[in-house]
């Protein structure tokens, strides 16, 4: 591990003119992890990373942009890795989303402290700017999953209502991250159980008629609320 790092640095020094975006992201994360705080300015970051500011700005407009790119790269790599596994082709939509979350758990271990620093104070309902690109990647991935589920009838067709599924699942993803970051069980087994149980429930609801029946009942109760109050009046007057 250490050896790899050293050789990476040497490489970067030798070919500092040919730095790629992903090289710069690696340097950024390395610096962040080692210092325990986000690099404060482009100037100080470039100094530590031993690159010119010119080089930096030719690749990213700001440090914030690097961070956004880092989180996006993180889940893009996970999505790429799982979609290349042998079993992927035979997976149902639910199984695809499950494997994504399990793979995220494994891929989070390396960045757990960064995630903790960034997310422990953030509400799951908020959309912090550093997650913007990750959010887009997630939505893109989950839309494909949902479309697949729709085609195989694993997910019931619900017209416009289905536009809500991606944001709902993104919210679920954020809930999962927050659960995972608070999980102190052995091998994060509780997070595994959390994923399994919540995803099963979500896909059960996507598939079944239960939501329709519930909304039908609610509509009925609201429209007939007059009956209730009338009934109550009649009853009390008798």
């Amino acid at each position: 591990m250490k050896k790899q790092k050293i050789s990476l640095e040497n490489q970067l020094h030798k070919a500092s003119k040919n730095l790629t975006k992903s090289d710069l992201i690696s340097l950024f994360v390395k610096e962040w992890s080692e210092e325990g705080v986000l690099p404060k300015s482009v100037f100080s970051f470039c100094k530590v990373a031993k690159i010119s500011e010119e080089n930096f700005y030719s690749l990213f407009p700001s440090l914030q942009a690097i961070e956004k790119a880092f989180w996006k790269q993180w889940i893009d790599e996970v999505i790429q890795a799982i979609s290349q596994t042998e079993a992927w082709g035979s997976f149902s939509a639910k199984e695809r989303y499950l494997s994504f979350l399990f793979a995220i758990t494994s891929a989070s271990l390396k960045y757990r402290s960064l995630l903790l620093e960034r997310l422990s104070e953030v509400s799951v309902f908020s959309n912090p700017s550093f997650l913007e690109s990750l959010h887009q990647s997630f939505l893109h991935f989950i839309e494909e999953v949902i479309n697949q589920g729709k085609e195989t009838k694993e997910i019931a067709s619900r017209g416009n209502l289905m536009k809500l599924y991606p944001p709902i699942l993104y919210l679920h993803f954020r809930f999962f991250l927050s659960y995972f970051l608070n999980d102190e069980s052995e091998e994060y087994q509780k997070s595994d159980a959390f994923i399994e149980k919540t995803v099963t429930l979500a896909f059960d609801l996507f598939r079944s008629q239960a939501p329709e029946s519930a909304s039908d009942l609610i509509k009925f109760l609201i429209s007939s609320s007059g009956c209730y109050s009338n009934g109550a009046k009649q009853h009390s007057s008798e």
Partner: peptide, 19 residues
């Protein structure tokens, strides 16, 4: 249990997929 969870358990325990 779902198969992805079974696979996840294998990865955690052996670092390898069942296959």
């Amino acid at each position: 249990l779902s198969y992805p969870l079974v696979a996840q358990t294998f990865l955690k325990e052996f670092g390898k997929l069942p296959e």
